[in-house]
Design a binder for these strands. Sequence first.
DNA 1: TTTAGCACTCAGCACAGTAGAGTGCTAACA
DNA 2: TGTTAGCACTCTACTGTGCTGAGTGCTAAA
Lengths: 347, 347
Amino acid sequence: MDERKRKVLLAIVQDFIATAEPVGSRTIAKKYKLGVSPATIRNEMADLEEMGYIEQPHTSAGRIPSVRGYRYYVDYLMKKRELTQEEEEVIRRGLDKKVRDVAKVFRRTGDLLSQLTSYTSMVLTQQGRPSKFKHIQLVSMNPTRTMVIVVMDNGAVHHRMIETPESIIAADLETLSRVLNAKLQGMNMDTIKFTLLQELYFELGRYKHILDLSLELIQDSLFLAEEDRIYLGGVFNMLTQPEFHNAERIKTMLGILEQEELLCELLSGENLDQGVTIRIGDEIEDDSEIKHYSVVAAPYTLSGRRIGTVGVLGPTRMDYAKVISVVDFLTKNLSVVLDRVLRGGGR
Amino acid sequence: MDERKRKVLLAIVQDFIATAEPVGSRTIAKKYKLGVSPATIRNEMADLEEMGYIEQPHTSAGRIPSVRGYRYYVDYLMKKRELTQEEEEVIRRGLDKKVRDVAKVFRRTGDLLSQLTSYTSMVLTQQGRPSKFKHIQLVSMNPTRTMVIVVMDNGAVHHRMIETPESIIAADLETLSRVLNAKLQGMNMDTIKFTLLQELYFELGRYKHILDLSLELIQDSLFLAEEDRIYLGGVFNMLTQPEFHNAERIKTMLGILEQEELLCELLSGENLDQGVTIRIGDEIEDDSEIKHYSVVAAPYTLSGRRIGTVGVLGPTRMDYAKVISVVDFLTKNLSVVLDRVLRGGGR
DNA sequence: TTTAGCACTCAGCACAGTAGAGTGCTAACA
DNA sequence: TGTTAGCACTCTACTGTGCTGAGTGCTAAA
């Protein structure tokens, strides 16, 4: 692959990304003055096609990049793009608003992402590491109902309402809470299950019902934890892209977007542990409709630990340079914001 | 409006709902044997058109119902439809799965709704009534971080992480929690603010920082409460409807669906406090694209109090009879399930 | 009042012809 | 040997035309 071929390929990719139209030799010669005539470029294009970097939708059309062509572009030809002052500003202002609600932060992140890229954004919040039990509290809501609250050491709080016999009074619950806390401090489920259960039941036998339900909540908190949750944004936004003039393509896209599990998988691969990952067309998956699209994703962290992934889903004809820079900048900022929101500290 | 006109209108509405094609006089004469010839029916149709119940897309097409026609159909002509055994079964089984997570219940409700109707479902969870403070608990997570947990008497639990000086130990937090609980029992914000504050600060002055942040959380819990949250389901589903063969219509639909506030408004009107409400076309709103669609909605309750709304959004050519029966049955069942999940009790 | 008959309208479709973009090949040129 | 101009060829997209079929409204007869 000599220098001129590279230039031609670059021109084709750039032009196709910009216009969504197959690129002809004349266009390249005129717009990207390589100093040679269209005929020469045609020769180069024939070579590039043979090598698998570009393809022709039909005989008398220009060329479009193949997946391989995009890959080469992303790996070797694309120049890194810095965000403009303005874009950085948009992100900073978007994330800086005073929020205490994590869900809102994620939704806003998604909105920013799709607003800046005009593709669909995905924000995945992943299971934290399996966390340990920290604290349990029983609160009487009314004579027959008690709220069980479990705090995990990663900061998650789970609660559940249970029915309790009238005979139990607030003081009992207070005592129960204290005893449970003392006994269960820092335990993981195994220890709780096998070592302490009998001891507890012996001491607190008359509260068996409450104990059962409390331990059940603790167990659920330990094992089921939070489900992965995915936020989508800017679906409508993306439909302004010319590839979606056709109703069928819109439908398949929406079909993809409704398969939450698929999207979660897309974003939860181990391999995208550091930095921005780019998957193009059938690199994503070979036998799903998604192979006509591309995904750019990057993880975000909380105190250095990866707790989720941000991604952009768009047509393979995606402005990779821009998307990559936005995703990169956004995940870094998101990590900072999350530290502030979730770990307490200044507003 | 004599009996025969009614029959003709009914035939037009039913046929159009079933086929999505303008209905001609011959079709009516053949399929809905009214015992008269197409010519007679044409005369009736001319009358109905003049009265505003039906309209003609273009000269040589059949007739389609107007908004007014649908309204007449829904109010006077439509016969109530009971759910089939099978449909009831689907709903029951769908909702009966053991769940503890409310969000999941709502999502499942939406899925069922759109699955049974093949339109888009919306589930709105509304602000509970302004609730009272019930319990506060401070839990030390590590030497410099404390989790503040507030329980409201409607069962909502709010939590927030705050920074605390190292000098504070777990026992202090325990004491603080106890004192706060004793002082604040059942108070609303006004009383907390003006009567007790000084007293508290006098007694617990050295914990001013924690107090500030705790009261702030209580305040937020009281006033901001939960935001309205809306779940959408079956968007892709609805696109199988023939009206969405055209890309533009899909786009405007998605545009509508991304305006969460609009959808929330749709479902939160006071007027739909009891039973199933049907709004057709521009009855919904006159100057939005939504005027080409219809909404069927009904509230659901928790211990008798309305806490949200379930709705179906689809083309005006909607199978009203079916949708109404599904929405009705589903909201009733949902209320039962919520009682079980949220208020504790058996699984 | 109902109905048969008929002329009329119009969307939708198939078809052919055309314009334009772009190609590949060949032969001439530096 | 690489580059270029020229040219024939291909194929899509668009346009206009004519036809078909569905459906109407009107009129006159039953």
